[in-house]
Simulated scan of single mutants.
Amino acid sequence: MNETRPGTPPGTVPETGDELASVFALLGKRWTVPLLAALLRGGFQYADMRVAAPGLNDRMLSRRLCELVAAGLVVRELVAGPPACVHYRLTRSGTALGPALGGFQRWAEENPFRGRASA
Rank of each mutant, 00 (worst) to 15 (best):
L35Q: 05
S22F: 08
G72Y: 09
L27C: 04
G103S: 11
G115D: 04
V23L: 13
L90G: 00
M49A: 03
E77G: 05
V51S: 06
P112V: 06
R5N: 14
D18F: 07
P14G: 06
T16R: 13
M60K: 06
W31K: 01
N111I: 01
M49L: 04
S62R: 12
V79G: 03
R76K: 15
A53H: 00
E110H: 14
Q45T: 07
L36W: 00
R30S: 11
F44P: 00
E67I: 06
G81S: 09
L97G: 02
E77C: 01
W107Y: 14
G81A: 11
A38K: 01
L20M: 12
T95W: 04
R41E: 14
R114Q: 15
G43W: 00
L27N: 02
G72V: 13
V33A: 03
R116L: 13
L35F: 08
R5K: 15
S93E: 11
L78F: 04
N2G: 11
R5D: 15
Y46S: 04
W107R: 12
D18H: 07
F104A: 15
N57T: 15
T16G: 12
T8K: 14
A80Y: 10
E77M: 10
P14W: 13
F24S: 12
G81Q: 09
N111S: 04
A70L: 09
R59F: 08
P10H: 15
E77S: 13
A52F: 03
A53W: 02
L68E: 02
P112S: 08
T16E: 10
L40K: 04
C85I: 04
G7E: 15
V23S: 06
L101I: 11
L56I: 10
G72C: 07
F24R: 09
G81T: 09
D18S: 12
M49T: 03
R92N: 00
A119H: 08
H87C: 07
L39K: 01
P6C: 12
G115F: 08
S22Y: 04
F44H: 09
A71M: 04
T91N: 02
C66H: 12
P112A: 02
R92M: 07
S22L: 10
A47G: 10
Y46G: 00
P9I: 13
A52S: 08
S93L: 09
P99V: 08
D18C: 05
G98T: 02
T16C: 10
G94N: 10
R89F: 02
P9C: 13
L101T: 10
V33M: 08
R63I: 10
A108Y: 04
E67A: 14
F113Y: 12
A96K: 09
L101A: 11
C85Y: 07
G81Y: 09
R116S: 14
P6D: 14
T12P: 15
W107P: 00
